[in-house]
Simulated assay, not measured.
Amino acid sequence: MDFPSPLAHGTLTARYKRFFADVTLDDGREIVAHCPNPGAMLGLNTPGLGAWVSASSDPKRKLAHTLELVEVDGGLVGINTLHPNRLVAEALAADAIPELTGYDTHRREVRYGTNSRVDFLLTHPDRPACWLEIKNCHLRRTGTLAEFPDCVAARSAKHLRELEAMVAAGDRAVALFVVQRMDCDRFAACADLDPAFARGLDQAAEAGVEVLVYACDIAVDGVRIARRLPWSR
């Protein structure tokens, strides 16, 4: 996934009300950027971090800029939670995720469960349908361990239960965690911040839901799904 135009660099001044970020650009301009991330952003919202923002020419937008990347410990971290679905769509089209190849169609936002829409429904006439949920992961607190979630994620836990139901019905179900950073080599559920989700992930796996974790290559011109990471249970 390439950014449609070059990003501008600056310094994060503050992130507040979840969806707002004050950034001082390198040219001295002070802007308010949209922060497309409803999570806690632990370790990624500290004033003084380097920040990269995109700009939109859409006159209908209230905020012209969007916070895309922050610089942490010399590396880039993607904070835009809208990107993982786009990244997975590209990866599916390119057969870049070996575990998810061999399907004729990749339908998005298909209704299932209780008032939910699955991120992708993969189908082939000779195979069971595959219900695919995507989760964005950007938390790293210790060493090279990526963790999810960074706050209580009741909606994500609900999705796990709905994936279990798809397996019980005879279909395939996958929870795919997209790690938008390059400094992690393994993944775990964050049991201290959301013990219910951690238990739910274990339960889903025992019920037959497949858990996949893929890290990204990140640069200021784009982000791509790159390599699989092991899940540490």
Rank of each mutant, 00 (worst) to 15 (best):
residue 51 A to W: 09
residue 53 V to R: 02
residue 55 A to T: 07
residue 57 S to V: 10
residue 57 S to M: 10
residue 58 D to Y: 03
residue 59 P to Y: 05
residue 60 K to V: 07
residue 62 K to D: 09
residue 64 A to E: 01
residue 65 H to V: 04
residue 65 H to N: 08
residue 66 T to N: 04
residue 66 T to H: 01
residue 67 L to Y: 01
residue 67 L to F: 04
residue 67 L to R: 00
residue 67 L to W: 02
residue 68 E to K: 07
residue 68 E to P: 05
residue 69 L to S: 06
residue 73 D to Q: 12
residue 73 D to P: 05
residue 73 D to R: 09
residue 74 G to Q: 06
residue 74 G to K: 03
residue 76 L to H: 06
residue 78 G to V: 07
residue 79 I to R: 01
residue 79 I to M: 09
residue 80 N to I: 02
residue 81 T to A: 05
residue 81 T to K: 02
residue 81 T to E: 04
residue 81 T to C: 03
residue 85 N to T: 11
residue 85 N to H: 12
residue 87 L to E: 03
residue 89 A to R: 13
residue 90 E to Q: 14
residue 90 E to M: 14
residue 91 A to S: 13
residue 91 A to C: 11
residue 91 A to P: 09
residue 92 L to V: 01
residue 94 A to Q: 14
residue 96 A to Y: 04
residue 96 A to D: 11
residue 96 A to K: 07
residue 97 I to E: 01
residue 97 I to R: 01
residue 99 E to M: 02
residue 101 T to E: 08
residue 101 T to P: 08
residue 102 G to E: 08
residue 103 Y to W: 10
residue 104 D to E: 15
residue 104 D to I: 05
residue 104 D to L: 12
residue 104 D to K: 12
residue 105 T to K: 14
residue 106 H to R: 11
residue 107 R to G: 04
residue 108 R to S: 15
residue 108 R to Y: 11
residue 109 E to C: 13
residue 110 V to H: 11
residue 110 V to A: 12
residue 111 R to I: 11
residue 111 R to V: 12
residue 111 R to L: 10
residue 112 Y to A: 08
residue 114 T to A: 14
residue 114 T to I: 15
residue 115 N to D: 15
residue 115 N to E: 14
residue 115 N to R: 12
residue 115 N to G: 13
residue 120 F to S: 06
residue 121 L to M: 06
residue 121 L to R: 01
residue 121 L to V: 02
residue 122 L to G: 02
residue 123 T to M: 08
residue 123 T to E: 13
residue 124 H to G: 09
residue 124 H to D: 15
residue 125 P to L: 09
residue 126 D to E: 15
residue 127 R to E: 13
residue 128 P to I: 10
residue 128 P to C: 10
residue 129 A to L: 11
residue 129 A to Q: 11
residue 130 C to Q: 09
residue 133 E to M: 06
residue 133 E to K: 05
residue 134 I to Q: 01
residue 135 K to Y: 05
residue 136 N to V: 02
residue 136 N to S: 12
residue 137 C to M: 08
residue 137 C to E: 02
residue 137 C to I: 00
residue 137 C to H: 04
residue 138 H to R: 04
residue 138 H to W: 09
residue 138 H to N: 10
residue 139 L to N: 02
residue 139 L to W: 00
residue 142 T to Y: 15
residue 143 G to S: 11
residue 144 T to Q: 09
residue 145 L to W: 06
residue 145 L to E: 07
residue 146 A to F: 06
residue 147 E to S: 13
residue 147 E to I: 02
residue 148 F to V: 03
residue 149 P to W: 09
residue 149 P to D: 12
residue 150 D to L: 02
residue 151 C to P: 01
residue 152 V to K: 08
residue 152 V to I: 15
residue 153 A to V: 00
residue 153 A to G: 01
residue 153 A to S: 02
residue 153 A to H: 00
residue 153 A to T: 00
residue 154 A to V: 07
residue 154 A to Y: 00
residue 154 A to L: 08
residue 154 A to S: 13
residue 155 R to I: 10
